[in-house]
Design a protein around this nucleic acid. Sequence first.
DNA 1: CAACTGATTTAGATCGATCTAAATCGTCGC
DNA 2: GCGACGATTTAGATCGATCTAAATCAGTTG
Lengths: 351, 351
Amino acid sequence: MVSESRKKNRVTLLDVARHASVSRATASLVIRKSPLVSTETRAKVEAAMQELGYVYNMGAARLRADKSLTIGVVIPNLVNPFFTELLAGIETVIDAAGMVVILVNSGDLVTRQETLLTRMREHGVDGIILCPAADTKMSLVERMAEWDLPLVQVLRHVTDDCDYAGVDYGVGMHQAVGHLVELGHRDIAFAVHGPVHSAYQERVDGFREAMEARGLYPNTIIRVPNQMAAIADSAELFSSGPGRSSAVVCFNDVVALGLSAGLYDLGITIGRDFSLVGFDDVADAEAMRPRLTSVATFPEAIGEGAAKLLLDRLTQPDLPPRKLVKAPQLRIRQSSARWSGTGLGRVQNSG
Amino acid sequence: MVSESRKKNRVTLLDVARHASVSRATASLVIRKSPLVSTETRAKVEAAMQELGYVYNMGAARLRADKSLTIGVVIPNLVNPFFTELLAGIETVIDAAGMVVILVNSGDLVTRQETLLTRMREHGVDGIILCPAADTKMSLVERMAEWDLPLVQVLRHVTDDCDYAGVDYGVGMHQAVGHLVELGHRDIAFAVHGPVHSAYQERVDGFREAMEARGLYPNTIIRVPNQMAAIADSAELFSSGPGRSSAVVCFNDVVALGLSAGLYDLGITIGRDFSLVGFDDVADAEAMRPRLTSVATFPEAIGEGAAKLLLDRLTQPDLPPRKLVKAPQLRIRQSSARWSGTGLGRVQNSG
DNA sequence: CAACTGATTTAGATCGATCTAAATCGTCGC
DNA sequence: GCGACGATTTAGATCGATCTAAATCAGTTG
């Protein structure tokens, strides 16, 4: 039996201590780099560790010391590049702190999220970074506070009584709409998709406000499917019929990429006949042609920010709840062009 | 102090046992769903757990039972969609088995990989799924075998003495090249990038063999940069000069997307003037227009396969090393077209 | 030389579960 | 009524580290 042998000849701290003729306690101090031990004994113990091939057993340490150097990350989706960039940012910071990430995928389902969170708790993670699934109740976060489990909300939030790292979606929408209006567009649609959550709501509200602030009616908010191929097929919702517009602001770059493909299929040239503005500016957007104008939200930086918030909270549990809301930045490229009047678009229905 | 209080009022198995007036051992049996306990006591204990709000402490259990319900996943890159689809597959299977994934990113650096692997070992993972960083030595895997730490190699392999889940890249290359040859192309280039590892070598060798098997000289193998934007800028390497060709097989879809963008910038119409075949068929490729012909390698399925191999090995450590090599599938779309003779391409330099 | 430092080292309890080996219980056959 | 037997239950040791509080040691000092 493999596990038998692994267990049998495992060298423990006691073995190391004996081999170095010191006590278990001293050996423990050496491992933890305590300044209490003398240089000589430290050397002796380290040599012994080397010779015996000692492997630190975090499990034992965690039991006694009640910390695991482990943090849980709950994400609703692993294929959307936005979330993986976020994850990369989190992983970088956590790793640099000498901790590891336990990753789970909630699939944006509250019930799964519930079981996953208890599982993390059982595993004894030191803290959790959560992008709450749609329909997550505030009570969940309150319950977790009772668990004394440090929590950071990321990208979406269900309560203000808890750290949060995210994006100022409202500002981003103002940038997107403002840009299109400056180019002369007035029939601007908004293409949304995905589950409804705080980030969704903020984007929609942001769009509405941005339009109204410019005296335009935000009445063309159209829902598209979630799968890339299906999004492409729904492009004609924007090029003809009641939703006909001269420009579309997209909920995110996935929608932008999909619509771009769909408009191409319809023979419409983006950046000439039609304008498109994406949201998030994920890496894949760089491959689109014409180049996608997009509102950059820096998911990797957000991930790093969230991880830092959590690390801070681990050392200072009594900090008041903090918010890290990053301002997005409009990246103007080729997919948005001056309104030609000859392309699509219809008579403006507002003053 | 938060951690104080968390520690203080933690309810342990002993508390539960007392509350249910049974022994600690019996309570433990109930948790582990042992058939030894009577239905009544089981109910009693479960009620007690409920009332006291008991939380299972995996850390303690793992220490005694020497298993952690945790597996380590080491991936060289978190932003390439290919790896995240792989990761999604792994996570699905591991999660279904009631275990969790500890995720780390080696950045394709052997030195980092080394420290990460020992870190996983210290954390007591039950097994590891590793996509070996470029330049990983066979000795690493041998050393891990000595650790008695179950290991599955994924996508790349450095030894045959260890489970492996991957793709038959050779077959994929034959499909890609064969398709282009059938369309009349003879000047077929291969665009590679990234670090050199087994999967890299297999793709290159596969391309060479596929070309030679058809009487063509595989002498146009060109290295492009790693970043999307830079790949696009290198597209002219294939449209003019000594590398001039009528079709390109791409190392992966990232290269294909990049070249597609670059060729667009040069005013070359893919699927008419020039043919492009991608490799991997990741989800993002669906958004490309014209639609990308690509060799599908099913990363998610590979991830699932790797996870299953590992789960099997956990229960049967003495199984001989197994290989799960999936055959890819050519997806013909619009980016590859019959050689027109009027587009790019040059006089064939072989018989 | 005893008392008192400050710097190191240590014995022994402890974290919260699981495992082993033995105890207890109710029932049954004789 | 007694020993046996299967079904349950349990006491106590154990996993491998950390923590606490106390011991030890080498110098100083009065």
